[in-house]
Design a protein around this nucleic acid. Structure first.
Lengths: 216, 216
DNA sequence: CGTGACCCTGACCAGATGGTCAAATTGCTT
DNA sequence: AAGCAATTTGACCATCTGGTCAGGGTCACG
């Protein structure tokens, strides 16, 4: 059971937080876990409450006892996701060694792609549809965070500690490259064959790629 | 059942080619164009025949006069897509200058992301769902093509013309980086703001990234 | 201008799907 | 063990959706 860093959250993201029962906690977790499985594999419209209910081992009306609607389940998933997803970027330390910080960020993201491919695909699905449920967060929280980190990188560059690259696109490139291995896993595996671990090669490659890019 | 005169056969790319009528050619094109628009924005399950019909300016039964099913429309789109999508890779010339060939490939792919974002998203959607409709092609055509091109790159490396990088992951990185700007366009635009052209910066960045990587 | 093939549509159908509800069952507290 | 709240479910509903069909309109061509 994967539980670390993925805590079952409160009920309606609304104001009133009741004291969650033992059974509530258990079943809400089951539902969100099942929903992650199903939504990430089929997208929002491609998933049905019946599938999620089956995966969770509950009846459909019982799902709707814990969440007011299909959208609510998805929404709750998304809230937790954006947070989890950006944690590694938040952790980038202005005080650390520039190249080490960026390489560590890249590696953490790659690790996340390996260990949380479902979350990655859920996120990708949402982006592909134009992120209707994340539009606000993207324009505010996300932009603010990325801009802040971009400024840090810019400072590093100005101090001559990194090659002069566009910080925003550097961050995009880390996102693109790491998430590709989760989101396009079928394609990657089809090309590499069944006996090769994509992430092994990916780590080496990305090490070289960013190592060469960042040298001042 | 009653099959009389149903022209819903496969396109010119198929085995049985009947002489397509003027109206057939026109309407099939309208339908595929509309389907691209709708499928790429909503995914297969998220799209309805009504949406496609509306977008195409035709009635739903009329769609089904030209194509036997929703799946058939999607399938036809996919066939054309994989071909279009891989054309730039096919064009990589073993006789050309190694770095120039790879940089040109990357640029052509980036250009495709800018000019055919719908195709890119359609492809991404399919991959995310595990590519159920492309599984065969991936394991055969695609793998063969990529392996062949990887061998060419390997030869270049052995000849000391390129830095020693894993050719497969090099190709993956080009795919990931270029398609990211189409598939995650919302996110990219949200971060960069409305007045910045993502592709402008992307081209510069990728130029530097791969330039540095490939130097022997 | 007639005729047969081609093209188009309103009306309809069956199954899927999100969601509701009253009633039954279970869990918790005193 | 009673009593009340929390949990669960079978039955049901309205709507959506892919797909069918019989019939009517249109086009091309002799």
């Amino acid at each position: 059971m994967n539980d670390t860093g993925n805590p079952a959250r409160f009920d309606d993201a609304s104001t009133a937080d009741k004291p969650l029962t033992r059974i509530q906690k258990l079943n809400r977790r089951k539902i969100l876990e099942a929903a992650l499985e199903v939504f990430s594999a089929n997208g929002f419209r491609g998933s049905t409450l019946d599938q999620i209910a089956a995966e969770a081992g509950l009846s459909k009306p019982n799902l709707l006892y814990y969440f007011p609607s299909k959208e609510a389940i998805h929404g709750e998933l998304m809230i937790g996701l954006l947070d989890t997803w950006l944690a590694p970027l938040r952790a980038m330390d202005p005080q650390g060694d520039p190249r080490a910080e960026i390489m560590a960020y890249m590696k953490r993201k790659l690790e996340m792609s390996r260990e949380m491919p479902r979350e990655s695909r859920l996120f990708a699905n949402e982006m592909l549809q134009g992120a209707p449920r994340l539009a606000d967060n993207l324009g505010n929280d996300l932009k603010a965070l990325v801009d802040a980190k971009a400024q840090i990188i810019r400072d590093w560059i100005d101090a001559g500690l990194l090659a002069p690259v566009d910080p925003h696109h550097l961050i995009f490139s880390i996102w693109a490259l790491t998430q590709h291995y989760a989101d396009f896993e079928v394609q990657v595996r089809a090309v590499l064959g069944p006996d090769t671990d994509p992430f092994e090669g990916a780590e080496q490659f990305l090490d070289m790629l960013f190592g060469r890019l960042l040298a001042p």
